[in-house]
Amino acid sequence: MPHDHEKTYDEIRLPDEMELLERAIRELLIEKGIFSADDFSRQMQESEKISPADGAKIVARAWVDKNFKINLIQNPKSALASIGYKVGAPEPNLAVVEQTKKIHYIVVCTLCSCYPRSLLGPPPEWYKSLEYRSRVVINPREVLEEFGTKVDNNVEIKVLDSTADLRYFVLPQRPEGTENYNEAELAALVSRDSMVGVTVPQKP
């Protein structure tokens, strides 16, 4: 499952029931003047401007600047504003959780597909899949292994189910042996999946 991330749609695929429903509701809202088609496409473009490279930059900054890291965890909104990222209203609030030697976080949304879009952009297909959402809460260690991640049995695995008004962003651990890396080199080690908690950044 984890390896079908980059699904390619080279066949013509008919929209499923949910997609048709979304389209019908969107068209009704536009017809009723709640928002315009332009508003919709502007919002889509806005949300696609953010990508996992943004999240990686934030992680690298936290690795090299301890004060920023503390602030990022305690008050993500102001820490992120200091480097030009806006989180919070109208988007949901953001919470940053730090991987340590004792605790390994994994993020899921079992109810839908809540995701820290304001730092990572739109979620990948696997994150939205029923398979990931249902299995990671019951058997997180098996799912992690499918992503190639082995977490020691004495480390607490903590699954965060983002069910409500918070979006969780995982701050991974800095790989050992990267003391001489600069911020840009560090950011290159941080993958999207490591900021969801299913993989761990590695020194190449």
């Binding site: 809460v137 260690r141 695995i157 903590k158 965060l160 189910d161 983002s162 069910t163 409500a164």
Partner: peptide
């Protein structure tokens, strides 16, 4: 605790799951 949520949880005792609840 995972063991309190799933009777059949087969991971270590200290694994947890957390959610936001009103």
């Amino acid at each position: 605790k995972q063991k309190d949520v799933w009777d059949s949880y087969n991971g270590p005792e200290n694994d947890t799951i957390a959610a936001d609840i009103y």
